[in-house]
Structure formats: C-alpha cells, structure tokens
Write a protein that binds this DNA or RNA. Sequence first.
DNA 1: GTCTATAGGGTGATAGAC
DNA 2: GTCTATCACCCTATAGAC
Lengths: 199, 199
Amino acid sequence: MTDSKPAKTARGGKRERLASAAAQVFHQQGVERTTLSDIAEAADVPLGNVYYYFKTKDQLVEAAIGSHLATLRAATDQLDRIPEPVDRLKALIAGWIEQRETAARYGCPFGTLATELDKREDGLDQTAADVMRALISWVEEQFTQMGRADAHESALSFVAAYQGMAVLTNVLRDPEVMVGQGRRLAEWLDTLERDRLGA
Amino acid sequence: MTDSKPAKTARGGKRERLASAAAQVFHQQGVERTTLSDIAEAADVPLGNVYYYFKTKDQLVEAAIGSHLATLRAATDQLDRIPEPVDRLKALIAGWIEQRETAARYGCPFGTLATELDKREDGLDQTAADVMRALISWVEEQFTQMGRADAHESALSFVAAYQGMAVLTNVLRDPEVMVGQGRRLAEWLDTLERDRLGA
DNA sequence: GTCTATAGGGTGATAGAC
DNA sequence: GTCTATCACCCTATAGAC
C-alpha cells in the first residue's frame, strides 16, 4: 500500500522519509496548517521534489495514515510476545503513559489526525477508521482470551478511555492526567481479572 | 466577555448570530477549513460586515468558545434542578446520547474544537481549556456530593470517558457506539452507588 | 452603521531545465 | 531522476462608498 513502486526509488528511501515526516508534522501542526514546504523541510527534501513522490497533499495524508498503521503493527507484534493477555494490555497502557509529554503537547498522534480528517467529506476518514478498527480488534482479541463475553464492548471502552484521557491530557496540558487515568484503567483490568478468578 | 459593547448593536443581534454560526460551522468543518464567508453566509450577514463585529478570525474563534461556555452553563443550570447528584450525571449522559447523530458525523462540538486549537501556539487553547475545566469542576461537584473521596479523579475519568466515546463514535461513524458506551458509563455510576450503600 | 470592491500574502500544483 | 522557477488560485483583511 505504501511502497509498491516498480523498484525505482534510487537510494535513501525519500518516500519513506517523506511519509514519516508527514506523520510527525501533521501531528504537531495539524493537516490544514501544514504546508508542503514544512514537510519537505522536515524530510530534508527539496520542495518541488515532493511532487515526484506524491502527486497531491492528500496522498501525503494517506501515506501518514499508513505510517501510523505500521507503527501500530510493530507495537502489537512486540506486545504479542507477552504471555498473558492482561499483561499485554497493561504494557500497552504503560507505553501510552511513556508518551505523556507528547500527548500533553499534541494529543494522540493518530486520534487527533482521525478527528481532523472526520471534518472532511472525502474518503480519507475511512482509511483512518481502518487503523482505529485495527487497534480495537487487537484489544478485543485480548479480552476474548481473557474470557470476557463482552469483549467487543470492553475493547471499545478500553480504547475510548485512552482516547479520552489523551484529549484531557492535551487540552489541560497536563501529562499527569495520563499517569493518573492510565493507572485507573489498569486497575479496571485488575478488577476484571479478580471477578473472573473469584467467580 | 462576549457582548460588552457600549450598547451600539442596533438590532437583530448580528454579533450573537455570528458567534453562534461560527461555533456551528467550526464544529462541522473545523476552524482551518472554515472561511469567513462560510460564517457570514451561515449567519446571513454580508461578508465585509463581519469585520465590523470581529476584527480578526481569531476573535470569532474566541466568540465561538464563549458560545460553548454559555451552552454548558445553560445545561448545568437545568441539571442542577435534579435532586440527586447521581441522577444529574445520568441526565448528562442521556443528553450526550441524544446528540449521537451529530457526534457520529462531527464529533463532540467542543472537544474537537479544543483538540484543533491545541495544535496552535497562541493562547486560544487556554481559553478552550477553561471551558473543559468548567465541565470537569461541575462533574467533580456531583461526585463530591455523592461522597466520593476521589471526586476529582472520578470527574476526569467521567469526562474522559465521554470524550473518548465521542472520538470513537465519530471515527467509526457509528452513533450506536455512543449508546452502548453511554450505557456502560451509567452502569459504572450505579456500581459506585451500590458500593457506597453496601459499605 | 452597513456593505462592496479590492489589495496583499501565501499555498498547492505544474512546466520544464539539469 | 532531481530540482528550480513560477503560475493560478483562494483567503484574510482593508479602504472607502453609501
């Protein structure tokens, strides 16, 4: 989806550099406030050259979404090595807490992008929705393995809790919100496990 | 803050019309994608005339935030008439669920605005943060009246849960997410009350 | 007070030299 | 394949007629 060119890209992988620079700058400035020259500069590529790799700005947005999906895949691949599903979810929370300073300044890298794209009327919002669905599915699988009958609803609650605490952390500009709310989310997981073992 | 002009506004309250039109159009299109002529048209005011009431686009953003604060105040004033604090929170959730179709299409009117403003570096994001704090404070007061020792943290969780379900409802374009997650949030309130009465 | 016409600045996109 | 120069457009904001 991201790099299916007939093996023409010479060296340096400028396309990847542009895609990942786009993801970063979009996160910090938002899509609308970001100019192509901002991205070119961040990727250290001459402005006019951008159009050789991406014909439109929207294609850069699409590439940025792909970049987020790749990041998600890499993260869940790592988490899947943890034996217990509940610990995988806790490790995911720990990762979010680690990113608290970034979240306080710019919000969730993917959530804020998806929110911005949802104001538009083109199909880009659906591409973003697919990434969110991928996260929810992975979380749902953990709840299923934990033996929860309401795995899907629980997964929605779990991801919603994260998105919500990211919004508050960002709006209040307070990384400690992420710490405190992340802890409460982890405690909720403990409650679920206790109920399961107790019943 | 919104209308402190020396009683010059002739008739019709064009200033208020512009402020509330701005809030609505910003919600649907986002601030950056909204032009002054979009707002002028929505408020049924000639484009050039906008500058008589607001010298810059940023002042319209500020007015829109003020409009959201007024909406919040009106809502909590109504809710305060309900005898039991837990029922006030439940009524708040019910109101959010009622707005589910709008949330599915454009997200939380205030949360998405605050998120967009947080990408900027001017002080407008702090004005938005004040409104979020006002909501959290009101919710916290209800938890305090319910006898919760962790009223502040609970209020953050409550508002975060709403913001999160609004994000998912919006990104997934599915109003039913708000229904299902709203119900779970209400059930959590029931759990708290049961624990309190049981202990 | 109200509105029209327009200036001024900046951005996405293209043509074509190297 | 790589990059520079530039076009064409749109939007904010202003000057000034009514």
